[in-house]
């Protein structure tokens, strides 16, 4: 039985590639945002904000491509599930890009001086590494249709969630210095953004499971925690 519909197969592949590349863009934005946080680099933060247009542009591009594919090629079966999942994945990529922007925009608000508390900063950096690893792993799980990797995102996400709580508690106990407290409050917001990025990565994992099994179910959500 010979292969048919080669042009259609090609455009489906291109759409998936473009979508997964958007996750690479997110990783890059996240790296820069984290570096900006570590060194209180307001200039670098500005670049993160400006560069987000690339991710937004990619979102529109993929969205349009998927609409065309649906209209012209009526994908069904696994193809249909891939297309539906790509719509979610690109949306999550766009949201994660926005969270990087949110982090970047917090920096100028907390002043131009170096970070104030090593413990708190260490926790933020650890959280950032985990979020970065989650985004990469979400991409890999989708690209390889690997459900094990997708489920493993939950484990990492649990750690991120715990760090988020730790950071909050550390910030509460940070002392009386006004500037340090202000910085710490902003770090709580940064942690919140990173925590959201982790959630989006888990959602991408759910899409992987949907493509593979044909069944959609949330691994975990706020009202039904997984662990």
């Amino acid at each position: 039985m010979e292969e048919t519909r080669s042009a259609y197969r090609e455009s489906l592949k291109v759409l998936e590639r473009q979508t997964l590349e958007a996750l690479d863009m997110v990783v890059q934005a996240l790296d820069r945002a984290l570096e900006a946080v570590s060194y209180q680099d307001v200039e670098l933060a500005g670049m993160v904000v400006a560069d987000d247009d690339r991710i937004d542009g990619r979102y529109l591009e993929v969205h349009q491509g998927i609409l065309s594919l649906l209209a012209l090629q009526t994908p069904v079966a696994t193809d249909l599930r891939i297309v539906a999942a790509l719509l979610h994945v690109i949306r999550h990529a766009e949201r994660m890009g926005d969270q990087c922007v949110n982090i970047a925009k917090l920096l100028p608000l907390s002043g131009y001086e170096a970070p104030k508390d090593k413990d708190l900063l260490d926790a933020i950096e650890r959280m950032g590494q985990l979020a970065r690893s989650q985004v990469s792993q979400a991409k890999q799980s989708f690209a390889e249709r690997n459900i094990e990797l997708a489920y493993d995102l939950l484990r990492q996400d649990a750690e991120i969630n715990q760090l988020n709580i730790d950071i909050f508690n550390r910030a509460l106990a940070i002392g009386d210095d006004i500037e340090t407290r202000e910085w710490a409050m902003h770090m709580i917001l940064v942690a919140r953004c990173l925590e959201r990025i982790g959630d989006n990565a888990v959602d991408i994992g759910e899409q992987t499971a949907f493509v593979v099994t044909g069944l959609f179910r949330e691994f975990a959500d706020a009202s039904h925690p997984a662990v």
């Binding site: 039985m1 010979e2 292969e3 048919t4 519909r5 259609y8 994908p75 069904v76 079966a77 696994t78 193809d79």
Partner: peptide, 9 residues
């Protein structure tokens, strides 16, 4: 799957 997605004619 292969038939409905047009992977063979």
């Amino acid at each position: 799957e292969r038939y409905v997605t047009g992977k063979f004619g």
